[in-house]
Nucleic acid binder design. Structure first.
Lengths: 219, 219
DNA sequence: ATGCAAAGATGCACGCTCTGCAAAATGAGA
DNA sequence: TCTCATTTTGCAGAGCGTGCATCTTTGCAT
């Protein structure tokens, strides 16, 4: 399985990702134009240039195509986090990983805006989107924990063993939640205005503001 | 529309309620036996002795048949609350209204147990059930507010006008929430055990315990 | 380059959900 | 009883989702 997500890989993987992206984009554009309920699987498939049957090879449900723009983004971030230089603290590594990912999204600004419109138009889809984010957050917390485990002590030396253990359990979830919040707020802010600021920069600012309230684990 | 729910009415209304109840009961029994996902609308309709088309006259969606046993219960409680003798305080009136309703449910004990099994087996349906309860609670809060408005001051005389206004706004929601919680806890308790205690009595006890923590509005 | 094996895409058939429409059945009331 | 309104029902049809067989593409070793 190799926890896919990176840009590389064989032609096969690249084509698969392209097809998935084409389907998701077609679904969102059509939904933004006609309303999600009015968009048939046939229309989406046609717009993406594949057969209806193929659509269901990528999505279990019609609605799934509306829920997330890029289902692999979370996996890519986790991978980047694990691949980051060992010298970087978990917070910095995470910030960079997400920044890089959002830089990709930068080029699809319009699509992101349409997506939020689609979600806001149907609470039904908004709920599913929220669920997807929560799942991503959980997976991210595990990745953070994995990165943290080998070296770098989490609590300052001299702390009680019990406190230290609890911090070790809690910190990944907390950091993942912080990151999730930062992304959400950034997306909202970035989508709502007709602004020139680059997406990753918006994120870095929000992240820094949030992180200022969260003490670093080792200090 | 007349806010239906009462037992009376013409033959027509009675038949409609019977059909609806038959469909809901059939749906739940079949779901408890074979799993909700495996139960077709055709099977439910056949078990209830009506056509498939008629099923969709009563429920917008197949899943709707699994969500609540009696969709009119909330309306009946609200009606009973409004019809209660004027001397009764809102809390007593509400307790009596719900007790009476649960006495009806007493005779369907087995069905209620099956229903909780069905809901617990599919989180999907559990969520919809929760939503239905929340909607009922909101409607109930409005009924409470309506009963409260004409006479009976809510806050003790001598209280500031501002505090009084806020209490008037808050109290109905609080009481409705309390009632909802009492019902939920009672159902859980009543369903989980093989006990002899009458359902309304369980409820009255739970209600009393919860209410002990909620000061009466006028005292 | 060539051929083989794995993986993906496609077409087809099928069952199920849900809707609109028109006809038949049934309760309400004069 | 006779009429009117409501309800039930069957039918046709669009759409969703799945299983299966087939065909094409990709990856890889020779």
């Amino acid at each position: 399985m190799s926890e896919n997500g990176a840009a590389g890989g064989g032609l096969r993987e690249r084509k698969k990702r392209a097809t998935r992206a084409a389907l998701a984009e077609a679904a969102i554009r059509l939904a933004a134009e006609h309303g999600a309920e009015k968009v048939t699987v046939e229309a989406i498939s046609a717009a993406a240039g594949v057969s209806v049957r193929t659509f269901f090879n990528y999505f279990d449900t019609r609605d799934d195509a509306f829920v997330v723009i890029d289902a692999d983004a979370g996996a890519r971030i986790r991978q980047a986090l694990l691949d980051a230089p060992a010298g970087l603290g978990p917070m910095e590594a995470l910030r960079e990983a997400i920044s890089a990912e959002l830089a990709e999204a930068e080029q699809q600004r319009e699509l992101w805006r349409l997506h939020t419109d689609v979600l806001n138009a149907s609470p039904h889809l908004l709920v599913r989107n929220l669920g997807a984010h929560m799942a991503d957050e959980t997976a991210l917390a595990e990745a953070i924990a994995a990165r943290l485990r080998p070296g770098e002590p989490v609590a300052a030396p001299g702390t009680g063993a019990e406190e230290r253990r609890r911090a070790l359990e809690l910190y990944p979830r907390l950091l993942a939640a912080l990151a999730g919040t930062a992304v959400r707020v950034s997306v909202e802010h970035w989508c709502s205005r007709e602004q020139e600021t680059a997406f990753p920069d918006v994120f870095r600012e929000v992240f820094a503001l949030l992180a200022a309230g969260l003490p670093a684990p080792s200090a």
